[in-house]
């Protein structure tokens, strides 16, 4: 086990930011901490890293108690914080070399690691650029390179794709999976459920400082009653239609927004057949028609009654 947290409580005055949190991260997994902004993800990470003091709880990393001066533990951790943490006056190469040098003394070894990190994040052509000359996406990549150049066994990424263009985001996510394949255990925090769903093997959903569910994405989705979600374009909408459609078997909820009706069905067979039969019987004309399996947002919505991005 790489990380074990028991009964973690962190308070800011009267506000409980993390409430009796227990979690375990196993070696080799990509562990996702998913939750809306302010749910306690970053606070939990900062407590795990002994950066923040906490009110109660025990934290072990690599089987040893974590403390601010646990340098042997810190040596094996790489952290990519949400905020860009680089020196504005140093070039890409200098920044990576500086931070790598805090972990690696051997100059030759460090030079190779820095080159690998630059290659890994695709900044070969930007070695001599200073941060302000880089785009947002490239800056994020530099931030990542500074955190992983020393090849840590545990990598913690706290919202690394905030304000990043889709191309850079894909590069970052692919890179994280590659790091995992190379043997690193990953903790990934995000409020983007698509990202967490895409790369995490196990996910912990946080809300108001508490874990509301955890497991693989399949396990999380199986926790809720919703079986599928159908959305369709309608041309002649009337309020009465929504009331009538609720009579269709297995319907959990039905909404109309922006010319589309979204129908959520509970787990059952033949949901689509019931819906199509109804539309045909009532001679309701419809356009584009989609059927989707539940997402983590649906899981969050059903468990908390609110959207992940609220």
């Amino acid at each position: 086990m790489v990380i074990k947290v028991e009964g973690l409580v962190k308070k800011y005055g009267d506000l409980v930011a993390v409430n009796d949190l227990n979690l375990q991260v196993n070696q080799g997994e990509v562990f996702g901490l998913l939750g809306p902004n302010g749910s306690g993800k970053t606070t939990t990470i900062n407590c795990i890293l002994s950066l923040l003091s906490y009110s109660k709880g025990e934290i072990q990393v690599f089987g040893k108690p974590m403390a601010p001066d646990a340098y042997d533990i810190k040596r094996n951790i790489g952290v990519i914080m949400q905020n860009i943490a680089v020196f504005d006056e140093l070039t890409v190469l200098e920044n990576i070399d500086y931070f790598c040098g805090l972990y690696i003394n051997d100059k030759r070894k460090r030079r190779n690691l820095v080159e690998e990190a630059i290659e890994f994040v695709g900044l070969r052509d930007y070695k001599k650029f200073v941060p302000k000359e880089l785009s947002g996406g490239l800056l994020r990549r530099l931030n990542i390179a500074c955190g992983i150049a020393h090849k840590p066994k545990l990598i913690i990424l706290d919202e690394p794709t905030v304000a990043v263009d889709p191309q850079s985001r894909n590069n970052i996510l692919e890179g994280i999976l590659k790091l995992n394949r190379d043997g690193a255990t990953i903790i990934y925090t995000s409020h983007y459920m698509e990202e967490v769903e895409q790369i995490c093997s196990r996910i912990c959903i946080l809300d108001k400082g508490s874990i509301i569910a955890s497991g693989s994405k399949e396990e999380l989705k199986s926790m809720i009653d919703m079986g599928e979600k159908v959305s369709m374009e309608v041309f002649d909408f009337k309020e009465q239609l929504l009331r009538d459609m609720k009579k269709i078997p297995n319907i959990q909820s039905i909404d109309y927004k922006g010319g589309r009706i979204t129908v959520k069905f509970s787990k059952a067979s033949n949901n689509l057949i019931y819906l199509l039969d109804y539309l045909k019987e009532k001679n309701i004309k419809f356009g584009k028609f989609y059927s989707e399996l539940p997402t983590l947002n649906d899981v969050f919505l059903e468990l908390t009654g609110k959207e992940l991005r609220d």
Binding site: V79, M81, N83
Partner: peptide
């Protein structure tokens, strides 16, 4: 943020 990163490194 740089201060945070330095505090996470294995250097006193």
């Amino acid at each position: 943020a740089v201060g945070a990163r330095l505090n996470l490194s294995p250097i006193h």
